[in-house]
Design a protein around this nucleic acid. Structure first.
Length: 738
DNA sequence: TAATCGATCTTTTTT
DNA sequence: AGATCGATTA
């Protein structure tokens, strides 16, 4: 005990301190909810810089969400300001950073734009003509999944995702087209860096030289491709440290593999394991409720989480008649207690937020909605972004198709085909092909090209910073003059905003959306204005534009943070609560069919349990759970049964309010329960069926229609069919009826 | 080519 | 209930 430990380590418990001070072999930290894992990581970063004299730039810490990355950066900087220079990013943002710098080695243009799921679907539609939309969706989804599993179009293992030839062909053609355009989807941001590092050992070695410390938070959320990336970043000198909790794995639908945690010790020999099992966040009664649900899972590593806090207030379970009462119940709880910022109202699906918003608005309860921000999915915003994307990458066919004929300029499918055949660079091809088009189409394409050119002109490419401010001032005046003269709908002259405004106006998109319908037109215009405002933070150059687009694609929470300072109730989905904590939490809609969702069985049901665990362990002092007897869904009022999770809690641990619906009594005490059976008793969820034309399939949904039960089947060939139990049951044969 | 009507589906969860 | 998509129509 020569030198005393620095003071900032005093507040850590023994295990936490061991984890911070650990060096050498790879380290796996199994950290239960509320056990201070973020604290361990951030302290470790600071300690490595401060005490071990590490260059902050040699430290990399990867998270899954931007929120987590930001928080990590902020907290590490409190202890050690130099932490700001460390690379603290999400997996995807690291991938984008990596590929902008080194993608050239794989023939990738550094000016790529990142496609979201919508764009991917649109791209797929261009290579798979004549395939119906729902089918395209399945294919696009499976392509994304394939990339999560690090599978390429030629991979035999693709079979496991979707064994159809159509799928293989779709993936192949999709990837070919995407490559031709030079853009990337989310999956590529992980998969391509792995491939690059594998094919260029010198580059991998340079990375091993640079990043001596690599840490990963929420490792239970990593998919196969991400675990491969980690392997490639691990060199002979690398200190590797991952933190995870198998009980909080809630993203397997996106390819996350809890197995990664189990396999970590095998992949990285001599791994040491430290468990953080003391929960500092929740009262012991809250922890008890959360644990009792997740205890019903089979597949667990098993750890004991001990509450440090006292028993506290007993969690409340409220049985309510309907969702309106639920909103009122929440409002009254909140208003009685006050302290808006202490409260979170949590639900399973984004759609459930609406009722609370209406009621909170009526009562004047301040709130903020996390994550449901559909801002970037709005038509006008996607239009504006497509214009921007086309400016940086004229090969972007998805963007081109989206906006070239919007508003209508007389460019039909025939004209478009001719342009696209004219070459991969659609800007050049448009120019070249224009004279050959009909008069109407010709003038149309020229209007479009003029708008794009005007947008380009706002970008100062040989940017000297001082010159730009002068231009900025001049532009601002010009903009204001224009505004006064009544020209233009949008304001914006600072930074990139000028480009957004110019494109939106010159293209006619602004006018189009304004005139299209009177009610939402102004809203759409103000959305465009908001986009322009966001752009003003970026430099008016091509790099600035790329940064702006990348930021939007990778972090859509933009603008949410500003409201955080305000004292407001948080409305949030269960998934989005991960990593957060609140003094008081209300878990709403805890009903069978909503949570867990009706089609969840087996491993999926276990994931829902973990989701319950995540939600409940967000609460520090008070936990409320509400379950409604009736709920309006799809315009109909449906009777609901309480969630089976509620039976898994020892009823003594809850204070129960309201009348337990009869259905609850019926389901109480039953060990195993068939998830959902059709009312005629013929079909159950998960049943295997055979159909003469379609082959084998599985029942994924049963619902009551006007003419009896309607059964939905997904076949192994990817087709989806629904049939009336009363009519067609003879052509569907149930397999392995037990 | 645009507008209108009707059928159908929606409510997972996210980088 | 509301949105969205497709087909039909002007």
């Amino acid at each position: 005990m020569a030198t005393p430990l620095p003071a900032y380590l005093d507040t850590l418990n023994e295990e936490q301190r061991r984890a911070v001070l650990h060096t050498g072999s790879p380290l796996l930290i199994l950290a239960g909810a509320g056990s201070g894992k973020t604290r361990v990581i951030t302290t470790k970063i600071a300690w490595l810089i401060k005490e071990k004299g590490l260059d902050p730039q040699s430290i990399m810490a990867v998270t899954f969400t931007n929120k987590a990355a930001r928080e990590m950066a902020a907290r590490a900087q409190v202890i050690e300001p130099r932490s700001a220079q460390a690379m603290l990013r999400t997996f995807h943002s690291f991938g984008a950073w990596f590929l902008r710098r080194h993608g050239k080695l794989a023939g990738l243009d550094p000016g790529f734009v990142i496609y979201d799921d919508d764009d991917s679907l649109a791209l797929l539609a261009t290579v798979m003509e004549g395939i119906p939309r729902p089918e395209l969706r399945i294919l696009a989804h499976n392509i994304a999944r394939a990339k999560d599993y690090f599978l390429s179009p030629g991979d035999p293992e693709l079979e496991l995702i979707d064994h159809r030839k159509t799928f293989r062909r779709a993936y192949e053609k999709y990837q070919e087209k995407l490559q031709g355009i030079g853009n990337l989807d989310f999956g590529d941001l992980i998969k391509k860096p792995v491939e690059l590092l594998r094919n260029h050992r010198d580059l991998a070695e340079r990375f091993h030289e640079r990043f001596r410390v690599v840490m990963v938070d929420e490792y239970q959320d990593a998919n196969i491709a991400q675990s491969h990336l980690l392997k490639e970043l691990y060199g002979p000198q690398t200190y590797l440290c991952v933190v995870g909790d198998d009980d909080q794995s809630i993203y397997s639908f996106r390819g996350a593999q809890v197995k990664n945690i189990l396999a970590f010790s095998e992949t990285f020999p001599k791994t040491e394991i430290i468990k953080l099992e003391q929960n500092y966040r929740s009262s012991s009664s809250i922890l008890g409720v959360a644990s009792s649900v997740v205890d019903h899972n089979r597949g667990r590593l098993g750890k004991t989480l001990r509450a440090v806090k006292k028993e506290g207030k007993k969690p409340v379970l409220a049985f309510l008649p309907d969702q309106d009462t639920e909103s009122e119940f929440c409002s009254e709880l909140i208003q009685k207690a006050g302290g808006y910022g202490d409260w979170a109202v949590v639900y399973r699906t984004n759609a459930q937020s609406l009722g609370f918003e209406t009621e909170f608005l009526r009562r004047g309860i301040p709130y903020r909605v996390v994550g449901s921000l559909k801002f970037y999915e709005r038509e006008e915003i996607k239009d504006a972004l497509a214009l921007l994307a086309f400016v940086v990458n004229p090969r972007d066919e998805v963007a081109f198709r989206r906006v070239v004929n919007k508003p209508s300029r007389g460019l039909g499918p025939a004209a478009l085909d001719r342009i696209i055949e004219g070459g991969a660079n659609l800007y050049e091809a448009s120019k070249k092909t224009a004279p050959a088009l009909s008069a109407k189409a010709r003038s149309g394409i020229q209007t479009f090209l003029r708008a794009i050119e005007a947008g380009k002109l706002t970008l100062a490419n040989e940017g000297k910073a001082e010159k730009k401010t002068i231009i900025g001032e001049g532009m601002r005046e010009a903009g204001e003059a224009k505004q006064k003269a009544g020209e233009g709908f949008l304001k914006g002259s600072i930074g990139l905003s000028e480009c957004v405004v110019t494109l939106a106006e010159e293209s006619g998109i602004a006018a189009y959306h304004l005139s299209h319908d009177e009610v939402s037109g102004n809203q759409r215009l103000s959305n465009l204005q908001e986009l322009a405002n966001a752009a003003s933070l970026y430099e008016a150059s091509e790099e600035g534009l790329l940064e702006f687009l990348e930021h939007i694609e990778l972090d859509r929470s933009l603008g949410e943070e500003t409201a955080e300072t305000a004292e407001a109730v948080t409305l949030i989905t269960l998934h989005n609560t991960k990593g957060l904590e609140f003094k008081r939490v209300i878990m709403t809609g805890i009903e069978q069919g909503i949570f867990p969702r009706e089609d969840k069985t087996g491993d999926d049901l276990e994931e829902e349990r973990r989701l319950f665990y995540v939600g409940a362990t967000r609460a520090m002092d008070e936990l409320y759970i509400s379950s409604c007897a009736y709920r309006r869904m799809w315009g109909k009022t449906m009777p609901m049964a309480p969630s089976i999770f509620l039976q898994e809690i020892d009823q003594k641990d809850l204070r129960i309010i309201g009348e337990r619906p009869r259905s609850f009594a019926q389901t109480m005490g039953r060990e195993e329960r068939r998830p959902v059976k059709s009312s005629d008793g013929r079909w159950a969820l998960g049943d295997r069926v055979y159909h003469d034309d379609q082959g084998y399939g599985t029942i994924t949904q049963i619902r009551e229609g006007d003419q009896g039960p309607v059964v939905k089947v997904i076949f192994e060939n990817g087709q989806e069919r629904r049939f009336l139990s009363s009519h067609q049951s003879s052509s569907y044969i149930k397999i392995g009826d037990d």
